[in-house]
Simulated scan of single mutants.
Amino acid sequence: MLPVLLLLIISAAAAENCTYRYGINSYSRKSLLTIKGLPTNLVYEPNSGDLLFTLIDLESLQNDDEQTRMDQYILRNGAPIKIDNVNGQAAAVDLKSGRVYIASDDGLNILNGTDRANFLSLKDEDIVQLFKPAHKDEIYLVIFPENEVYVFNVDKNEKKKIEHVPCAFILAVDSKDNIYYECDSKYVKVLLKDFHEPIEFAGIGKNTARAITVDPAGNVILAANDGLYLLRPDNLIPKKLMNLDFVPSGIAFGNSNMFLSTHGIIYEYSWCK
């Protein structure tokens, strides 16, 4: 009876662990990292398995008289590695070339083989957000203090302002070049390609959007205070995929896994086959 009992215990434990629902699939969850501060701007690098993130110092964030302190990290094999030669504020991965771009308060950089940032372009620009679509070579930038959105051509070393997007605090671009963002209105919107007026998604509470990304299947996923949503350009009512028991600060996807961060912690959700 012992083998049968042991099997029942293992099966029960496995079933209990796979209690997190994302769409129609079940996931298990574990803590990848606990760290002081707010980890945000999660980006997964599939070739190395690294998870890049920005760590915000919460004391400076809450102090209006002090500039918010941010550091850029690589999470590798469970250990955080600080990119200490640059004031990093965001990262983006070029899936075709394997390049890792680092946004800083003094331009755009590339991560080298020794986990240091090499300056690339846009000297003196304070870049606070990056997004690298998988289908094109250009990079989308958000530049402080107005948080205006630009598209940057790496080969031509040229940046062009995106019209009709007044500003962005979170940003994602789908395979059709539709731009999803949240700005001063505190509501999530999409600017369809070749259109001039952005469209607001219904049902997302004011000032509740926290992070946005595109998953490996090309779906735009929003992390909001109460859960994860699928955003589609042809349906202004988002589909809720997952409830959350915490307020998220970052989201990224890697293969069949999902990464979510919140105050002081980064979680990994693994698909239960």
Rank of each mutant, 00 (worst) to 15 (best):
D137F: 02
N243W: 09
V142G: 03
L241Y: 05
N147S: 14
L244G: 08
F253D: 02
P46S: 05
L241M: 10
Y150C: 04
I10D: 07
A223R: 02
L95Y: 02
L5Q: 15
K239S: 14
V4W: 05
L171M: 08
L52D: 00
E146W: 04
E66N: 03
M1S: 15
S121V: 14
D124M: 07
C183F: 07
E16R: 12
N178Y: 02
K193W: 13
W271A: 03
V149F: 04
S185T: 15
G88K: 00
M70I: 15
I265Y: 01
C183A: 14
G218C: 07
T213W: 00
A202N: 07
A134S: 12
F253S: 03
D226G: 04
N85G: 15
L241N: 04
E66H: 08
K239F: 12
D126Q: 14
K176P: 05
D177S: 12
G264I: 06
A92W: 00
D57M: 05
G107C: 09
S270K: 11
A91K: 00
Q67G: 14
P216S: 13
V86K: 00
L38T: 01
G254A: 04
E148D: 15
A202C: 06
N112V: 09
D137L: 01
D215A: 11
C183R: 08
G203K: 05
N85M: 08
A14N: 15
V142K: 01
K123C: 03
N118V: 06
Y269N: 07
T114K: 10
Q129R: 08
I10N: 02
L55H: 02
I127V: 11
A217V: 12
R116D: 03
S31R: 09
L5A: 12
N63H: 06
E182G: 02
I127P: 02
K186V: 11
Q67V: 13
G98D: 11
D57W: 01
D126N: 13
S261M: 02
D71Y: 05
S185D: 13
I237G: 09
A172V: 13
P238Q: 03
L130I: 13
E66P: 03
D84T: 12
Y187T: 10
L130G: 02
I251F: 02
K189V: 07
N255I: 09
N257C: 05
P166C: 04
L141Y: 08
A209N: 01
I81F: 05
K176N: 09
I81C: 02
L244S: 07
L122T: 03
S175W: 08
L61E: 10
A90V: 06
C18M: 12
E16D: 13
V214I: 14
D84K: 15
T114V: 15
R29V: 08
A12T: 13
V142Q: 05
A91C: 13
A12H: 12
V190T: 09
E16G: 04
V93G: 00
K189T: 10
S121D: 11
D57L: 04
K136Y: 01
Y20D: 07
D177I: 06
I24S: 09
D177V: 03
K206A: 11
L236G: 01
I237T: 12
K273S: 14
L231N: 06
H263A: 14
D57Y: 01
I199V: 14
C18F: 10
G37S: 15
F53W: 06
I143F: 02
P166K: 06
K96F: 01
N207C: 15
T262I: 13
M258W: 02
